[in-house]
Simulated assay, not measured.
Amino acid sequence: MSGGNMRFAGKVALVTGGRMGIGQAIARRLRDEGARVITAQRGRDAEFEAIEADFADPDCPAVAIAEVIARAGRLDVLVNNAGFMQEARAEDMSLSDWNRMIAINLTAPFLLIKAALPHLRESRGAIINIGSIEGIGCNPHHAAYSATKAGLHGLTRAIAVDHGAEGIRCNAVAPGWIDTDLAEAYIDSFPDPAAFRAGIARIHPVGRTGKPEDVAALVAWLASEEAGFVAGQVWTIDGGRMVQLSLP
Rank of each mutant, 00 (worst) to 15 (best):
E134D: 11
I102M: 06
C138L: 13
A147F: 07
G137P: 12
G73D: 01
R29E: 12
L155K: 01
N5E: 14
D179F: 13
R71H: 06
G4Q: 06
A90H: 10
W235Y: 13
S2G: 11
A116E: 08
V243Y: 15
D192H: 02
W235V: 10
R42H: 07
T156M: 01
H119R: 11
V219Q: 03
V206T: 15
G137Q: 14
W221K: 07
L95C: 08
D54Q: 04
P212G: 10
G17R: 14
R7V: 10
V37T: 01
G228I: 12
P248S: 09
A220V: 09
V219P: 00
N105F: 10
S132H: 01
V234K: 00
D76I: 11
E184T: 14
P193A: 02
A27C: 07
I159G: 00
A160R: 00
H204A: 07
D188H: 05
A90Q: 04
A160Y: 00
G228F: 06
R241M: 15
R202G: 03
E33C: 09
E134I: 04
P248T: 08
N81T: 05
D54T: 06
K11Q: 15
L120W: 05
I136N: 04
E67T: 13
I26G: 04
P212Q: 05
W235I: 05
L75M: 09
A183I: 14
T107N: 05
L218F: 11
G10H: 03
G199V: 01
T209H: 10
A62N: 01
A201V: 11
T39E: 15
I178T: 13
R31C: 07
A72D: 05
S146F: 08
G232A: 05
G17K: 14
A150H: 06
A198F: 07
C170S: 09
L78V: 04
A150N: 02
F196H: 11
G17L: 10
W221C: 06
D76Q: 14
R241D: 15
V206E: 14
D214P: 05
R36F: 08
H204M: 09
I159Q: 00
F190E: 11
W221E: 03
A108Q: 07
L218M: 12
I187L: 13
Y186Q: 15
I69D: 08
F48K: 12
S224H: 00
W98V: 09
K11A: 08
R7P: 07
W177N: 12
W235F: 12
D54M: 05
V219K: 00
R121V: 06
H141R: 15
G10V: 07
P109S: 11
A53H: 02
P61K: 05
E166S: 08
F196W: 12
H163K: 12
N99C: 04
A220E: 12
E87V: 13
I51A: 13
G23W: 14
D32G: 12
Q233Y: 10
G73V: 01
I203E: 12
G34V: 04
S96E: 07
F190R: 05
I128Q: 06
S189E: 02
F48T: 08
D32I: 04
T148S: 11
G73Y: 00
A115R: 05
N105S: 09
N171Q: 08
N5H: 13
I38G: 10
I133P: 12
G199Q: 09
P109K: 03
G125T: 02
A13Q: 02
A158M: 03
A103N: 04
L14S: 03
L182E: 14
D192W: 01
I38R: 03
Y145R: 02
A64F: 09
F229N: 10
